[in-house]
C-alpha cells in the first residue's frame, strides 16, 4: 500500500489526488491521508506531496468538465469539512465520478457518493451557522469578528460578508487555525495567517464594548416572551458551543 500525504489545504489536496492518480499504482493500492500522520503503518510507503497550482487547476477543471459543477461544489466543501479521512473520501468519490460522469451526484446509494455528500453538507451547514452567529466588534474603525468553527469555513463565510458590506473594513478571525479573512473597504478580501503575537493583540478586540453592544443585549433580553420560555428549543437552534463568541452571551 502506498500512502500519499499532504498538508491541510485545498491546493495540496488536489495536487495529492493528481499525484496518486498519476502514479499508476492502482486505486486499490493507494490511500490518501492528511498530515500530520501520527502513527505510520507497517508495510506502507509514505509519499509526501507539495501543493502545485498547475496540477490543482488541472484537477479542478477536470472535475467541472468531466463530472459536473455540483460535484466540484461538493468536493470543495468536503475538503474544508472536518472529517479525518476526507481526502480519501474525495479520492474515492472522484474515482467513481470519472467513470460515470455527470450522474455521479445522483448515485446516493453508492457509499463514496453519500460520504462526500455528508461531508459537504456538514461544512455547508456550519458555514450557514456562522453567517448567522458571527459577531463583529468595532475596534479602531475596523469590525473584527472571532470564530472557532469545526470546519475550515472562514473563506466561505467571508464571501457572504464581502457582498453584504462591500464598503466597510472588517476581518474575520479563526482563533483555532490562526487564519483571518481581511476585507479593506471597496476591495476584495484576502486570507492571511496570523502570528501568535498578532492573534493575542486581536483577541483583545473581543472585550471591546460600545453603546451598541449594550443596546443589543438589552434588545436580546427584552424580546423573549417570559410566558413562552423554552431553553431546550433555544439550544436546539443554537447549540452552546456556537455561543462562545456571541456578544449577547458574553455578559
Amino acid at each position: 500500500m502506498t500512502v500519499f500525504t499532504c498538508k491541510d489545504s485545498f491546493e495540496a489536496m488536489m495536487t495529492c489526488i493528481y499525484a496518486a492518480w498519476a502514479s499508476g499504482i492502482g486505486h486499490d493500492d493507494v490511500r490518501l491521508q492528511l498530515e500530520p500522520v501520527f502513527q505510520r503503518e507497517l508495510f506502507c510507503t509514505y509519499v509526501h506531496v507539495e501543493a502545485d497550482v498547475q496540477k490543482t487547476e488541472k484537477v479542478v477543471s477536470a472535475i467541472q468538465k468531466k463530472i459536473s459543477y455540483e460535484a466540484y461544489r461538493q468536493v470543495f466543501l468536503a475538503s474544508v469539512s472536518c472529517g479525518e479521512d476526507r481526502l480519501d473520501a474525495i479520492y474515492r468519490f472522484l474515482v467513481l465520478g470519472f467513470s460515470v460522469g455527470a450522474k455521479l451526484t445522483g448515485m446516493l446509494f453508492r457509499p463514496e457518493v453519500m460520504w462526500v455528500l455528508e461531508l459537504s453538507r456538514k461544512a455547508a451547514n456550519e458555514a450557514n451557522f456562522f453567517r448567522e452567529f458571527t459577531r463583529f466588534a468595532l475596534a479602531d474603525g475596523i469590525y473584527v469578528a472571532h470564530i472557532e468553527p469545526k470546519c475550515n469555513i472562514v473563506a466561505v463565510t467571508a464571501e457572504h460578508f464581502a457582498d453584504r458590506m462591500p464598503s466597510a473594513r472588517w476581518m474575520i478571525i479563526d482563533d483555532q487555525r490562526r487564519i483571518a479573512a481581511v476585507h479593506p473597504a471597496d476591495c476584495p478580501f484576502y486570507m492571511t495567517e496570523l502570528s501568535g503575537e498578532e492573534l493575542r493583540r486581536l483577541k483583545e478586540t473581543e472585550a471591546e464594548k460600545d453603546a451598541y453592544t449594550g443596546l443589543w443585549i438589552e434588545f436580546f433580553q427584552t424580546t423573549g416572551i417570559e410566558a413562552r420560555k423554552n431553553p431546550g428549543c433555544q439550544r436546539n437552534h443554537m447549540p452552546l458551543w456556537y455561543r462562545r463568541h456571541m456578544t449577547e452571551f458574553l455578559v
Binding site: 453567517r131 448567522e132 452567529f133 434588545f219 436580546f220 433580553q221 424580546t223 423573549g224 416572551i225 417570559e226 413562552r228 420560555k229 423554552n230 431553553p231 431546550g232 428549543c233 433555544q234 436546539n236 437552534h237 443554537m238 456571541m246 449577547e248
Partner: peptide, 15 residues
C-alpha cells in the same frame, strides 16, 4: 437568515 434565538426559542432575525 436568523441571527440569534431568544430565551423562548423564537428566532431573532430582524430588529
Amino acid at each position: 437568515i436568523c441571527h440569534s434565538f431568544a430565551s423562548d426559542g423564537r428566532c431573532i432575525s430582524l430588529l
